[in-house]
């Protein structure tokens, strides 16, 4: 059964140095609050998995939490580069980052394989491309029925999956809707799952076939309103596109990024405190 805890308690109890962590959410419901808390608790040497690293992993990489990353598209959506990611890959700052690069289709299939307790994913992919040349875990398998040669890639089996969802009930059953990405698969592929939610409700009132994660596949559930901002939560708030644009400038320069980290993450006690600081400064900017 999922245990209702604070996010700080969940990260302290379940996220440890050197683990493999998958924080999913495809543009939508990205668990930013949890990412901040991992930085705040100064976890190190993590192997990060995520289809689209987005700003959440740019922040973790820049803060020195990651040793390795598996991903399939590493840009700032609609804006350009992830500068902290690029600085780590191109210059080894703040530490070298080993990368394992896959395609979206591959990683999605690999999460499915993980959730299904299979050792590898099989897909029609990569033919003619250079991926297998640089990643020896992208291999091939011959179909025993037709003889067709297909791509075979290792399943994703994270130690911890972290997602954000719209609602959880008192028992810790979780409901999410809208663009679902690979969150359900990530939770089911992982040994431990932490879920942050917009709100804690008496009953989910979910229709049949809704995407519900039963309490007993979730380890910890935490109420963190706006916990996915600057991404969005369908039915709650929109994507903060200006933050994504502003991040391009903040993250471009090491010093400016370090100052952001000090002020917004290390000097704040939790995500609510971070959001209050952000809105206070915005109010000042408007009134000055």
């Amino acid at each position: 059964m999922a245990e209702w805890t604070t996010l700080a308690e969940a990260v302290k109890a379940h996220v440890h140095d050197g683990q493999t962590i998958a924080m999913e959410g495809f543009t939508h419901l990205i668990p930013f609050a949890a990412g901040h808390e991992i930085i705040r608790q100064r976890r190190r040497n993590l192997s990060l998995i995520r289809m689209t690293p987005d700003l959440i992993y740019d922040q973790l990489i820049g803060a020195g939490c990651a040793a390795r990353m598996t991903f399939s598209w590493g840009g700032n959506p609609g804006v350009g580069s992830l500068h902290r990611f690029r600085d780590a890959v191109e210059n080894g700052w703040p530490a070298p980052l080993a990368i394992e690069e896959r395609s979206h289709s591959d990683l999605a299939n690999a999460y499915v394989a993980g959730a299904a307790n299979l050792p590898f994913a099989v897909l029609r992919g990569y033919t003619g491309s250079d991926f297998a040349r640089v990643n020896d875990r992208i291999r091939s398998i011959t179909c025993p029925f037709t003889g067709e040669v297909l791509a075979a890639t290792p399943a994703v089996r994270p130690d911890v999956a972290i997602i954000h969802a719209q609602k959880a009930d008192f028992k810790g059953n979780v409901l999410l809707w809208g663009i679902l990405g690979v969150q359900k698969e990530a939770v089911l592929a992982a040994k431990t799952a932490i879920v942050t939610v917009e709100e804690r409700v008496p009953s989910l009132e979910a229709p049949p076939n809704a995407c519900v994660l039963p309490s007993w596949v979730v380890t910890a559930v935490c109420e963190v309103p706006r916990g996915a901002t600057p991404s969005y939560a369908h039915g709650y708030y929109d994507r903060d596109n200006l933050f994504y644009q502003a991040w391009d400038e903040v993250s471009r320069d090491r010093g400016r990024f370090a100052a952001w980290l000090d002020r917004y993450i290390y000097a704040t006690s939790d995500f609510a405190d971070y959001r209050k600081l952000q809105s206070d400064l915005r109010a000042q900017a408007v009134s000055s």
């Binding site: 590493g74 580069s81 890959v89 191109e90 690069e101 395609s103 979206h104």
Partner: peptide, 12 residues
Amino acid sequence: KVRLPGAGGAPE
């Protein structure tokens, strides 16, 4: 020299 975003869905 330049690290680009990568594959996304394009290969498939």
